[in-house]
């Protein structure tokens, strides 16, 4: 699949995002994040709340505020660094080349403007079409994301739609101009399971139809398992494990990944099978600069973990940031 293309569509190099106004102590929300997305590829960024996954996506889109934020590294889109682009240039790219679907469809749609206007806005802005043509295309788009009676729905306001339908509208808006890259930030977290299944199906089909690449940001490893080719696991602002999805699920090597998989209740596991939680909470971290942030919660901790920072290194079939990873094919290692 990647043979025909000589460079990744999106290549994030050593991205860092620091928050803190002048004179205040800076907080590194994201650090040393590198990832590649090839055309048509589906890549996941997995982590718990506070791990920096959403900040990464906002940095890629250039949606972070100017004040009090320092973004470092490179975000190369087809070889061009997005971080050096002017706001105007970015506005031209957003929607047409790179689009985004947010978690909460109620707050990302404008409540006082009809769905139709919000959907045609992106078409009128990026494509050379008349209003009537945009309208026609909008009806078609809503139909494609599975909204019944699309012509009527176009005249409605977001509050008149259900949560699942609002999320479909967002997907329709994001894919209206057939972008090459879609960033989906927890697109189904606010939805019920059966609606989540509908929306994921629509997302999958449309991404396949338009041949777009997908960066899926989620905390749900179940969603990742059925959707993404490559998985990056983030903890406290850095990527700790990065590999192909089959290898990650069959054989997690980082103790955090292993612990996460062992702590999720699964529908297909036998009843009474014990869950092995990760002790402590995501707020108990050490600074990455002097130690491994996961060390306080890690069952595989060795002395080095609290003395110096592990680097992300290519280890066999994956990139791993750990001094004492779980053994190959050892699923229970994180359980102590």
């Amino acid at each position: 699949m990647t043979g025909a293309h000589d460079q990744p569509l999106l290549s994030v190099r050593d991205l860092s995002v620091r928050f803190g106004l002048k004179g205040q102590r800076q907080v590194a929300a994201v650090d040393e994040v590198s990832l590649d997305i090839w055309p048509g590829q589906h890549v996941a960024l997995v982590g718990e709340s506070g791990s920096g996954k959403s900040v990464t996506s906002l940095a890629v889109m250039g949606l972070l505020p100017d004040r009090g934020v320092e973004v470092g590294g490179e975000v190369l889109y087809r070889g061009e660094d997005l971080l050096t682009k002017s706001p105007k240039e970015m506005a031209g790219l957003r929607g047409s080349e790179i689009a985004m679907v947010f978690q909460d469809p109620m707050t990302s749609l404008n409540p006082v403007i009809t769905v139709g206007v919000q959907l045609t806005e992106v078409l009128l802005r990026h494509l050379q079409v008349s209003k009537a043509e945009a309208r026609e295309r909008a009806v078609e788009l809503l139909g494609r994301v599975g909204i019944p009676d699309p012509a009527r729905r176009l005249r409605e306001y977001p509050h008149q739609l259900s949560g699942g339908m609002r999320q479909r509208v967002l997907i329709a808006i994001a894919l209206a101009c057939e972008p090459k890259l879609l960033i989906a930030d927890e697109p189904t977290t606010a939805l019920d399971v059966t609606i989540q299944a509908q929306v994921l199906e629509v997302l999958k089909d449309l991404v396949a139809d338009t041949d777009a690449a997908l960066l899926m940001i989620t905390h749900d490893l179940g969603v990742v398992a059925g959707l993404c080719d490559d998985v990056n696991v983030m903890y406290s602002g850095r990527i700790v494990e990065s590999t192909n999805r089959n290898r990650l699920f069959a054989n997690p090597r980082h103790p955090y990944t292993g612990g996460l998989l062992a702590s999720i209740p699964r529908l297909d596991s036998p009843r009474g099978a014990p869950l092995t939680p990760i002790p402590g909470s995501p707020t108990q971290t050490l600074p990455w600069t002097s130690a491994c942030a996961f060390a306080p919660r890690c069952g595989n901790r060795v002395e080095a973990c609290t003395e110096r920072a592990p680097a992300l290194e290519a280890t066999g079939d994956r990139d791993l940031r750990c001094f004492n990873p779980l053994a190959d094919a050892d699923l229970t290692g994180a359980a102590r």
Binding site: T194, Q196, Q198, V223, L261, I264
Partner: peptide, 27 residues
């Protein structure tokens, strides 16, 4: 049946082989 088939399982092998019933419409 539909509810259970909609729950994603964190295992690509399961996800690829199982049959999925997708309900249409909203509650």
């Amino acid at each position: 049946k539909a509810l259970m088939s909609a729950v994603p399982v964190p295992d690509p092998r399961v996800e690829e082989t199982r049959e999925r019933i997708i309900l249409q419409g909203d509650l």
